[in-house]
Structure formats: C-alpha cells, structure tokens
Design a protein around this nucleic acid. Structure first.
Lengths: 69, 69
DNA sequence: GTGTGACTTTGAGTCCGTC
DNA sequence: CGACGGACTCAAAGTCACA
C-alpha cells in the first residue's frame, strides 16, 4: 500500500470517527466534495496546503493527521 | 509565515543538523538539487510524495518531519 | 556547493451533473 | 449521502543554463 492510499484510509477513518459526511468535511475544509472522494480512494498526491485544510477541518495538526504514515 | 516557508525552514534546519549539503540531501532523497533549494526557500507547495522522499532522506517519519508545523 | 529564473509536462484541484 | 465521470484551469513536478 502506497502513501496516497494510506492517507486516504486515514482521512476516511477520521471522518467516520467524527461521524461526518464527505460533503460536510469538504465544506468545513474548503475543499471540493469530489476531491475528498478522490483523496479517500488514494488516487491523489495531495499537497501540503490540502493537508493543512483537511487537518484544520478535523481540528488536528498536520503531524497528527499523518501519524503512523 | 505560511506553511511552505515553515517547511522550508524545517528542512533547512534538519539538513544543517545532519551537516549535509543540499546536493547530498538531493541525492539521497532522489530529488533535484534545485528543487530542494526551492523548497527551502518556501516557494513550493510540496506534495506528500515529496515529503515522503525528504523524510526518508532524513531517515525520519513524515509526521516527525512535520512536527510543530 | 549554492542561488536564481525560466521552462514544459503532468497532475492537482474545481465545477458540472448523474445515478 | 456516496460513487463516478467529463471538462476545465492552474500549479506541482522536474529539469536546465548560468551566475
């Protein structure tokens, strides 16, 4: 499993834990809904700014978002 | 200071700590020398795969690379 | 060994709609 | 609400010559 897939799973798991929809995460993170989907599928090589947006959406640090990755 | 600049400084500091040149870091990380340079200047919005390369070059985890960022 | 500007190609990232 | 796809724009990836 590559790093993109790992991050996808991590995002998906965090999202499930918080019990929010892809759409909701997309909104609070200021990212496109379809892009979140693509990320969760492990298709995208996301940039640090997107990582930052997602982390802030989850209200955690980037380093926390990438823990165990 | 934005996140790109923060990462640039972090990379630069880690590199100085290890006492290696940009060229050496570039080689062990499999990245172009000028690209490392651009990253250290905080100009690049680097992706997760580049973060992975740099982290592995430093022999640390990505989460460790992004600590305090 | 470092610093810079310029460049091309590929994919990041957005927006639309459908099922 | 999640999954998928088309079409689009702009930026990340990667390299070069020269100082």
């Amino acid at each position: 499993m590559n790093i993109k897939e790992k991050i996808g799973l991590r995002v998906k798991r965090l999202r499930k834990e918080k019990n929010i929809s892809q759409e909701a995460l997309a909104n609070i993170s200021n990212i496109d809904r379809t892009y979140i989907q693509s990320i969760e599928k492990g298709e995208r090589n996301i940039s640090i700014t997107i990582l930052e947006k997602i982390a802030s959406g989850f209200k955690i640090s980037i380093s926390e978002l990438l823990k165990d990755i």
